[in-house]
């Protein structure tokens, strides 16, 4: 476990989960060629939930959240996001994508655009927001992630942590109702992990529905309301973080926890 655990400032009383369904996945299966990556996934995410998905590499956790905004296509079962069923209908896909924000391990900022342009691009072209208004929104979120002074720089001039915070701001500019995080801190220097996690905590406190694939168990313990453990394309165990870490039920979970928390 990292030393960060004690430093993360969070007021758990602010975290609320409603009983409104945000994402509903039923009997979802996915194959890469003949390889069965995701097997019979059933998952219901309620609005305001902070879910951490953990598991060994190759367990399908990234693929699972990438199916939610259809960066990956599932082959059977049903995924319903905010009441929209994901199928090959392009209109539905674009609708879901503009409602669901995503942060990637390698940030994937657009290197040929300034930070501000990165943030205003999608609002202007997808939401048809007037440029001025989009820029105001962008500055608002850049202030929120505490880097408004970098607005006119290019991504290549920023540190990894700053880039990831810009990536979060870029997603927020689309005013998403759900945020997906695909290992947001895995490519960062240890010194920069905290600034990104702090930003994510702020989001959580504002009631954002979040699904995070991460190895930051400190974050999982303190911020998540549910931890999901996956192995071999299946959900092996899910529970509240307290129970999950202190009293894991399955042997596979115990082994995993002992390996990542053991040293």
């Amino acid at each position: 476990m990292t030393a960060l655990d004690t430093e993360l400032q969070i007021d758990r009383s602010k975290l609320k989960v409603s009983d409104e369904v945000a994402v509903q996945i039923t009997k979802m299966n996915k194959w890469f060629g003949t390889f069965h990556v995701l097997r019979d996934i059933d998952l219901t995410v309620y609005r305001g939930e902070r879910i951490v998905i953990a598991g060994p590499s190759g367990s399908g956790k990234s693929t699972l959240i990438r199916c939610i905004n259809r960066l990956e296509e599932h082959q059977s079962g049903k995924i319903e996001v905010d009441g929209t069923v994901l199928s090959s209908d392009l209109k539905n896909i674009d609708k879901v994508r503009s409602e669901v924000g995503m942060c990637f391990q390698h940030f994937n900022l657009f290197p040929h655009l300034t930070i501000l342009e990165n943030c205003t691009l999608a609002p202007i072209w997808v939401r048809k927001t007037p440029k001025k208004e989009a820029e105001e929104t962008a500055m608002h979120f850049l202030e929120k992630v505490r880097i408004p002074e970098q607005a006119d720089k290019y991504p290549g001039q920023l540190s990894g942590g700053q880039q990831q915070r810009v990536a979060i701001a870029r997603s927020l500019c689309m005013r998403p109702r759900i945020m997906l995080f695909d290992e947001p801190t895995s490519a960062l220097d240890p010194e920069m992990i905290k600034e990104v996690l702090d930003t994510m905590i702020e989001l959580a406190q504002e009631g954002m529905t979040m699904l995070c694939v991460t190895h930051e168990m400190g974050f999982a313990r303190q911020v998540a309301n549910r931890v999901i453990f996956m192995d071999q394309g299946q959900i092996v165990e899910q529970n509240e973080p307290e129970e999950f870490f202190n009293n894991p039920k399955s042997d596979r979970t115990k082994l995993f926890l002992s390996q990542i928390l053991g040293h």
């Binding site: 905004n69 669901v100 994937n108 657009f110 040929h112 072209w125 997808v126």
Partner: peptide, 25 residues
Amino acid sequence: KGQYEAADALGLDYWQSMRLIILPQ
């Protein structure tokens, strides 16, 4: 590949992502 994925994830359609993100680079 991340550039294509980021453009998709933001909800840009094919021609928008080509014109604004992919082709300039």
